[in-house]
Design a protein around this nucleic acid. Structure first.
Lengths: 193, 193
DNA sequence: AAGTTTATTGACTCGTCAATCAACAAAAAA
DNA sequence: TTTTTTGTTGATTGACGAGTCAATAAACTT
């Protein structure tokens, strides 16, 4: 039975299962057995490939952020002009995928994890740095020197809007969030002109 | 030894200890024994006064939000004029107290808790409703009909700024957050005029 | 004084879970 | 073909934790 080259396949399955389970349970209170079962293997095998549960969490976090990064990059490539780039970033951040159970569970719980696990904090800093850079680049032609400041507030607004959409009862509305963020942007730009 | 009327004293001690422990550990992974020990009693007594750990969490959450509410109310009473009221709300939200370990742990973890425990979600909705109302009332004289929309974005910005200050490395800077929020407000108001 | 209510805890139950290990199977290398 | 490497799991260990309970004691009631 043992085909070779299983390692990447198993790891990948475990990472995905970890994210799903965190979303399902709504917290990091998931057992290795649950994860392994969902990934179709024994818990011993999960421990074989990842040394510990924490390693699994970190791998899952990296995966989520890789997906996110790819989403933003893809949206940016298809965008035209500075404002188009901003819109693309906003749409990527508030895409339906980011409101799926798994994604929500991942982000909320990674914020918590970042409080105690330095590596988690580092990963989160990378995500914020990327968002910041993307915003600044897109804003430069529109706002010149004020790009940095506006990126700061726009970035925070994105996080805040996401949090509110996620916590509120009822279906989240990415479109509305995008609209509010754009209004904020317009106001800031008008102020500078 | 058993003085009477211990119940409120014990409950209060447990609530405070719960918040401290959550902040110390950085997650909801605190044991009833830890909490009870910090509160100076046996875990059995903790179970006697609160039926379950979840009840303790919810009581702690109510307590945090009561503190928060009192802080905002106090700041509002001492405020002069519409803009003064806004400033007061912002200062209360970004006061040093809210960046203490316990407060940070409480908020982050209550967001997670709200995902699965309906009562936690309800409490959070109350907090958001109050912030929203306070903002709208203060904004009305400044922005008229647009008060509601601006309150929406300003509220989200507050949450986002708080999250970023909390997650970033280094000492949080409430002043900077207040400044950014005020800039956002000015921009929105200028737009309307 | 006898009985009831409140306060309090140590010991215990029952369950869970992360991590380890021994053992087995198959492919690859020697 | 022996040996080594890779894949895999059931069983086990060792620890911890939520919630219960019986027992003890002080106060309050009648």
């Amino acid at each position: 039975m043992p085909k070779l080259g299983m390692e990447p396949i198993r790891k990948d399955a475990l990472v995905k299962a970890t994210i799903v389970e965190i979303g399902r349970v709504g917290s990091l209170d998931v057992t290795v057995s649950q994860i392994a079962k969902r990934a179709g293997m024994s818990s011993a095998l999960a421990h074989h490939y990842f040394g510990s549960k924490e390693d699994m969490f970190l791998a899952a976090m990296r995966h989520v952020m890789t997906i996110y990064g790819a989403e933003v990059r893809g949206a940016l490539e298809a965008a035209e002009g500075p404002e188009g780039r901003i819109r693309a970033i906003l749409r990527a951040n508030f895409s339906p995928g980011n409101f799926r159970r798994e994604a929500v569970g991942a982000w909320l719980n990674f914020w918590v994890l970042a409080q105690t696990v330095p590596e988690a904090k580092r990963l989160l800093a990378i995500y914020q740095g990327r968002l910041r850079t993307n915003l600044i680049v897109a804003l430069r032609p529109l706002a010149g020197a004020r790009a940095v400041d506006i990126a700061e507030s726009l970035g925070a607004l994105i996080d805040g809007l996401y949090l509110r959409e996620v916590l509120k009862s009822g279906a989240p509305d990415g479109k509305a969030a995008v609209a509010i963020a754009l209004r904020h942007l317009k106001a800031e730009l008008a102020r500078g002109a």
